[in-house]
Design a protein around this nucleic acid. Structure first.
Lengths: 205, 205
DNA sequence: GCTATAAGTAAGTATTTAATTACTTACATA
DNA sequence: TATGTAAGTAATTAAATACTTACTTATAGC
C-alpha cells in the first residue's frame, strides 16, 4: 500500500499549488460539482480539514485555479505572438497552442464554461469573465493588424471573428468530449484552423 | 398575494411537461446545479415532495428535459431542411433557427454542455451524446450535398466543418454569456455565418 | 538541542439535498 | 351518491457538503 507513507508537510505556498493542480486534474475525470474539498483532499492524500489551512474558503480555491489558468493562457499568448511573425502566423500559433493546452488539461474548459454559465456577479465569475474578454481582445488586435497589412479582409468584423475563433476551440472541445478522446484537439486543430482562416480572408471587395 | 390561489390538480402528464418547462426556465437564471427539486417545486407552486409523484428520480427529470430538447431541435432541423432549398440555404436556416432557439431558451446550452462535461456512461450523458452526434450527422449530410452540387469546396471535411458550425454557435453562446445579453445571438448570427460559409466554400483546387 | 510556528488530524457542526412516509383530498365514474 | 385512484401535503430521513475547533507534531530558526 503506497498510502502508508507518512504525510509530508509542505509550505502553504507549495500546498496551494498542489491543491490547484489537483482541482485541474479532478476536473478532467469528474464534473466540476464533484470537485469537493473531500475529493481534493483524497487526491493529494490529506484530510479534508487540512485544505482549509491553505484556503480560507472554497471560493478562494476557485479564484486560485482561475488565476493559474489566466497565467497559463497569458504566457501561451505571449509566446505565440512573440517574434517577427505575420498576424496570420501568430493566429495559427495561438490556435494550435490553445488547443494543445486544452488537450493536456481537458478539465480547464469544463470549469471555465461551468463558471461562465452561472449568472450574477460573483467574484469567481468576474475573474473568468475578465479572462475570456482579455483573450478575445488580444485576438481581436491581431486580427486588426492582419486587416491593416491587407492579409485579411478589410471588411472583417474583428470582434465577431475573435468570438468565432474561440467558438472553434469550443467546437473541438465538444468533439473531443463526445468521443472521449483528448487527442481530437491536436489532431483536428490544424484542419479546422485552415477552414476558419479562409473565412477570415474571404469576401473582400 | 397570488399564492393564495388553491393549487389546481393536473394530470401527471401535464405536470411532467410543466416540470420540464420549469427546469428549462430555471436554467437561464441559475446554474444547472442550483436546479434542485425544491427550486422546481417553488417555481411551479408545489411542495418538493409532489415532484416525486411524477418523476421517480431526479435523473428521470433530466432525461425528460433532454428528450424535450432533442425533439425541439429535431423539428427545428426538419423545418429548416424542408422544401426545395439549396444546401447552403438550408445551412443558413438551420444556423439562424438554432441561434434563435437558444436566444429564446438560454438555459438549454448550459444544461447540455454541463451534462456533456461529465465523463462516464450515465444514461443522461448517453442521451445528450446521442443528441449532439445526431445533430452533427445531419449537418454533415447537408454539407456533403453542398459538396456534391459544387457549391462547397470538394476537399472540405464535412465532419470537421459540422463540428466547426456547432462551435460557432457555442462561440455566440459564450459572447452572449459574457455580455449577459441573449440578443447577441440573433444579432450577430448572420454575420458569423457569413464568415463561416466563406470558409466552407474556399480553397478549392 | 530547544522552542515557537504552522501544517496536519480527527471529530465535530449547520445546512442542503434527494428521496420517503403517512396522511389528506380532489375528482372521475360506476 | 358512494368509492377507488392518484395528485398533493407536511414532516422526516440519510447522506453529503463547506467549514470549525481542539488537539498533535513536524520542522525551521535561534
Amino acid at each position: 500500500m503506497p498510502e502508508t507513507e507518512p504525510r509530508k508537510r509542505l509550505s502553504s505556498d507549495a500546498r496551494q499549488r498542489e491543491i490547484v493542480a489537483a482541482v485541474v486534474e479532478l476536473a478532467q475525470l469528474h464534473g466540476p460539482d464533484a470537485i469537493t474539498t473531500q475529493a481534493i483532499a483524497e487526491h493529494i492524500g490529506l484530510t479534508q480539514g487540512a485544505i482549509f489551512r491553505h484556503f480560507s474558503t472554497k471560493e478562494a480555491i476557485w479564484l486560485a485555479v482561475f488565476a493559474w489558468v489566466r497565467e497559463a493562457l497569458g504566457t501561451l499568448l505571449d509566446e505565440a505572438s512573440a517574434g517577427p511573425a505575420t498576424p496570420v502566423e501568430q493566429l495559427e500559433r495561438i490556435f494550435l497552442a490553445h488547443t494543445a493546452f486544452i488537450a493536456r488539461h481537458p478539465g480547464v474548459p469544463r470549469i471555465l464554461f461551468h463558471e461562465l454559465q452561472t449568472p450574477g456577479g460573483s467574484p469567481v465569475r468576474q475573474a473568468v469573465r475578465a479572462m475570456v474578454m482579455g483573450y478575445r481582445q488580444r485576438v481581436s488586435e491581431i486580427l486588426a493588424r492582419g486587416k491593416a497589412d491587407g492579409t485579411l479582409c478589410a471588411s472583417l468584423d474583428e470582434a465577431k471573428a475573435a468570438g468565432l475563433l474561440i467558438g472553434a476551440v469550443q467546437g473541438l472541445v465538444i468533439q473531443s468530449a463526445l468521443r472521449e478522446d483528448p487527442e481530437v484537439l491536436t489532431r483536428d486543430a490544424e484542419a479546422v484552423f485552415a477552414i476558419l482562416l479562409h473565412g477570415f480572408k474571404g469576401r473582400c471587395p
